[in-house]
Write a protein that binds this DNA or RNA. Structure first.
Length: 777
DNA sequence: AGCTGTGGCAGGGAGG
DNA sequence: CCTCCCTGCCAC
């Protein structure tokens, strides 16, 4: 095993760790079925730019100068966690930031704030080596809560909104329900604490457990003065400090539980679905259906009906909660494998692996290597990355057949073949890691093909995908503002070489008579020359293209399609040979589009790809009628948006004039419960003018009353026409008006209507510096 | 205390 | 009208 990747400690099955006292760590190892514990010494530490900053510090500490020219040239270690923080504060006070300014860059101290991470870095250990997810002891948790008044969102602060059921299950098939009918809430909580201690799980799992179940349980436990002692050492939940900022709120952080890992399957599901968009929702039931493990007799209950059920027919609730924990277990089985394998490489606990991004993991591995060799660390460089991928569209409309050719692992290949690595990485760890991960990934992929049983193949796939995630993030790390080893010039170099490679591919495809439709970063859609040929011929052509590439750059055929609707850069649709359709791009598929619009756009695309103009017309007429006749359900024309900032921030920015009012946040302000970033609001537009100020004329879907439909018909007809306008370039103007017209006095006659295809010339770049390059093309 | 990157489109509000 | 700017969402 490569110590660079898997740490320096020998193979061991470490399943948990926590701070024990001030300067020791208790670690839990699993061998066979038994759990062993040991207490080991641990010295909390941080990196320091200048040893003098610690002069006069009273606490017991060691200061060690590091080798090399790095900015963080000192390693400070302490005899207690508390002393480390005291020292941190002292140093921060000694390098004060100007009033109102953010702290000075670079920071004088570089600190890992989690003791388990620090211990793993220091010891060279990693967790769960050689283990599969099935080797862990796990507990799944799901709570049901009572809301009063009914149909409102349960609020733990309201005394009546108590926990009524707690469903639990384990990896060994054990199941139990704590039932509020048989015991009061307080006793349920005490029982829960006992069960956690008795079953002693390594992992506590739940769907949205970080955002709902655990916070709710904590509030109720506080109310009853029940200590929620879930820790392996009997300690309480440790909640993350109040967070400020934006983006990472979208996913609430779970509390820390000493010696255990909290795995929120909702977080796992979001990372699974990110960029894939296969799920209709990230709810548990949708996921179970998606992966095909939903029980056929699955009990479903509308959450708003829970209070009614509890009062009148409680038995189905028990079955419902049990189904939830069973599905949670299967979801974790399905999704946690890759994170588990990463835990074996990265000095993070499983829960931390799931919640942190790839750049953090890469950095932790770099720091581990530098720490091991007692070499100073660099600080983040000033500046910004300026260049990105090349993207362009050359032809719009319906074309085909098309071939998609793309460069395999473009940025990693460029970095490996050109030896591009951060200038500050004097030990050369970055390149070594990248090459090693790439080799291991290829090996894992080979082994998958050779693997006999699906279990082994599944494990190898988890391994392979964890390598892939890391490999693809090395480029991003170069441009990461806060990365210790960032290097913006090298990041620009990678993208610039990538652009050159893509342009060279375009030239070669054209040179061979192909018609280039669209290009984006590392891939090109093109119509092969001559009469449509078979797959082998296309593949051979891409092979020849690959032959023109520099050493280490491979182009592969990643898809063949019967037809393509090319709309704009990064926006297109494909008709597969099996008849399936793929639609890409924010202007064609977006969660924020009204559902009727999504259906309409997709339907028209499908019609055009199948050469059925009459079907496109029918879709328009049907949608027009439904809107004008007010027969659309509210879900069809409601717009759904995700809040990305706290409402308070929005209001402050509006007040300050730095942002405009928007319907979504105006709705959120008046919502019954306090909405947070990550929550979605659904609203529709009222009134009677086609161009209303939407932030004034919006209403939440909850207030929709089908008996008094007040949707803004002119507005939604205008929206329909905006959706139709996406197809304007595919027709002659007269034909376009005929197809997308509600006028049905005469039967629509599609004969004579031809689909238009347009050549789009890329706009010349604006900066004169690039002009010569443009003229070359 | 936690935060990989750039490029691109649509929709909306504000102000000329 | 139009342009500018911001936000949300998406492709890679």
């Amino acid at each position: 095993m490569d110590p660079l990747l898997y740490g320096h400690a020998p193979d061991e099955r470490l399943v948990g760790a926590h701070l024990s006292g001030d300067s020791r760590v208790r670690v839990y190892r699993r061998s066979g079925g038994a759990l062993h514990t040991e207490e080991v010494p641990f010295f909390p530490f941080f990196h320091l730019s200048d040893g003098r900053l610690l002069e006069g510090f009273q606490g017991r500490h060691w200061l060690k100068p590091l080798e090399g020219e790095g900015y963080y040239a000192w390693l400070a270690a302490f005899d207690s966690w508390q002393a480390m923080w005291d020292a941190f504060r002292l140093v921060s006070d000694r390098s004060p930031s100007p009033r109102g300014e953010p702290s000075p860059r670079p920071e004088p101290v570089h600190l890992f704030t989690d003791p388990v991470t620090q211990y793993l870095l220091q010891s060279g250990r990693t967790m769960m080596k050689g283990m599969t997810y099935a080797d862990l002891s796990r507990l799944q948790v799901d709570i049901e809560t009572y809301a009063s008044p009914p149909h409102t969102f349960p609020n733990a602060e309201r005394p009546a909104d108590r926990v009524i059921l707690i469903a639990l299950s384990g990896d060994d098939g054990w199941e139990q329900v704590l039932d509020g009918r048989r015991m009061g809430e307080e006793r349920m909580l005490r029982e829960l604490v006992k069960i956690v201690a008795a079953r002693d799980p390594d992992v506590i799992e739940g769907h949205n457990i970080a955002g709902y179940d655990l916070p709710y349980l904590q509030r109720r436990a506080d109310l009853h003065d029940v200590p929620l002692a879930f820790g392996r050492d009997g300690s309480l939940l440790r909640w993350p400090a109040g967070r400020q900022g934006a983006e990472w709120w979208l996913d609430p952080s779970p509390p820390e539980i000493a010696g255990r890992h909290v795995v929120d399957t909702h977080t796992l599901l979001q990372s699974y679905d990110a960029g894939r968009h296969e799920l209709e929702s990230t709810g548990l039931k949708a996921a179970a259906r998606h992966f095909g493990f939903a029980a056929p007799d699955r009990v479903t209950i509308d959450p708003r009906r829970i209070p009614w059920h509890w009062d009148n027919d409680p038995e189905p609730l028990v079955a419902y909660a049990l189904d939830d924990v069973r599905e949670t277990r299967q979801l974790a089985d399905r999704l946690a494998g890759s994170a588990l394998h990463m835990t074996q490489m990265v000095p993070f606990a499983l829960g931390t692996v799931i919640r942190t991004g790839a750049a953090q993991k890469i950095e932790a591995m770099l720091v581990r290597a530098y720490l091991r060799r007692r070499v100073a660390l660099p600080c983040p460089g000033e500046g910004m990355q300026t260049a990105g991928g090349y993207t362009d569209v050359f032809v719009t409309g319906v074309v085909g057949p098309v071939v998609h050719a793309d460069v395999e692992s473009l940025y990693p290949s460029i970095m490996i073949t050109r030896g591009i690595a951060p200038a500050s990485d004097t030990l050369g760890v970055f390149g070594e890691l990248l090459r090693e991960l790439t080799t291991l990934r290829l090996e894992a992929k080979r082994s998958i093909r050779a693997a006999g049983d699906p279990l082994a193949a599944g494990r190898l796939d988890a391994m392979q995908s964890s390598f892939k995630i890391l490999i693809n993030s090395f480029y991003g790390y170069l441009g990461y503002t806060r990365g210790l080893f960032n290097d913006f010039r090298r990041a620009d170099e990678v993208t610039r070489i990538g652009q050159e490679i893509l342009r060279s591919m375009i030239r070669h495809i054209r040179g061979a008579g192909g018609r280039v439709i669209e290009a984006d970063t590392d891939g090109i859609f093109f119509v092969p020359p001559g009469e449509p040929e078979g797959e082998a011929v296309d593949r051979a052509a891409v092979g020849r293209l690959s032959g023109t590439m520099p050493e280490g750059i491979t182009v592969a055929m990643s898809g063949r399609y019967a037809r393509m609707f090319s709309y704009k850069r990064k926006n297109y649709a494909l008709l597969r040979y099996d008849g399936g359709i793929v639609v890409k791009g924010s202007s064609l598929v977006s969660r924020s589009m009204e559902r009727f619009g999504r259906t309409f756009v997709r339907g028209v695309i499908e019609a055009l790809l199948r050469d059925d103009v009459a079907a496109a017309h029918d879709l328009y007429v049907a949608a027009h009628r439904a809107i004008a006749g007010r027969t659309l359900a509210v879900a069809e024309f409601a717009r759904r948006e995700t809040l990305r900032e706290p409402i308070e921030t929005y209001l402050r920015d509006v007040e300050a004039g730095t942002r405009n009012r928007s319907a979504a946040y105006e709705i959120a302000r008046t919502a019954a419960r306090h909405l947070r970033p990550g929550d979605t609001v659904a609203y529709y537009i009222t009134g009677n003018e086609p161009n209303p100020r939407t932030f004034e004329q919006c209403r939440p879907v909850e207030e929709w009353n089908p008996n008094f439909p007040d949707a803004n018909v002119p507005y939604y007809l205008r929206r329909l026409d905006e959706f139709a306008a996406k197809f304007a370039d595919s027709f002659e103007p007269r034909a376009f008006r005929a197809v997308f017209s509600p006028d049905d006095l005469f039967p629509f006659d599609p004969s004579g209507i031809r689909l238009e295809v347009r050549e789009v010339t890329p706009e010349p770049p604006e900066s004169p510096a690039e002009e010569s390059e443009w003229q070359e093309e």
